[in-house]
């Protein structure tokens, strides 16, 4: 499934002040997450208070976009009409090199070739103004 086939009928994130920078960075081709200035950990998903140490001192950091697959599944049916063109598609948990774990898709022509521990790198699919979906491809 190519980037051009992104369909507006997939659910488009409804952003809020703490999350809009994440989606906007993605629309500019960067994977960006808050890093806590107290405990120094990156967290996902972005929020106004660090879930690791409850600090409110956070700053956005552009990440490498590299990670490994922690686990994965293949949706053999669509999760709503917007996903029909993608079936079958891989949904995976990605351990980012910087430490956070995120749910995303792994785009590949061979869904059966995906494996835990596989190295992946980020790519982006435009969804709306200032919103792109970070997805991953085999590195």
């Amino acid at each position: 499934m190519s980037q051009d086939a992104s369909t507006p009928s997939r659910p488009v994130p409804i952003t809020d002040p703490a999350t809009a920078p994440f989606w906007k960075a993605a629309s500019q081709g960067e994977l960006s997450l808050p890093r806590c200035e107290d405990c120094r950990r990156v967290h996902y998903y972005p929020r106004a208070v660090c879930p690791h140490c409850s600090s409110e001192s956070l700053s956005w950091e552009t990440l490498s976009g590299r990670g490994t697959i922690y686990s994965w599944t293949v949706s053999r049916r669509p999760a709503g009409a917007g996903f029909k063109p993608y079936v079958p598609y891989v949904v995976a948990l990605i351990d980012l090199d910087e430490g956070a774990r995120m749910l995303s898709n792994v785009r590949t022509d061979d869904v059966d070739s995906v494996a835990i521990g596989q190295a992946v790198r980020v790519d982006f699919e435009d969804m709306a103004e200032d919103i792109a979906l970070p997805v991953f491809r085999p590195a």
Binding site: P11, T19, Y44, T73, R77, A79, Y86, L103, N105
Partner: peptide
């Protein structure tokens, strides 16, 4: 929190 879940099509 679902803005980081639903767009990826997990069943």
């Amino acid at each position: 929190n679902m803005q980081f879940d639903s767009p990826f099509g997990l069943l």
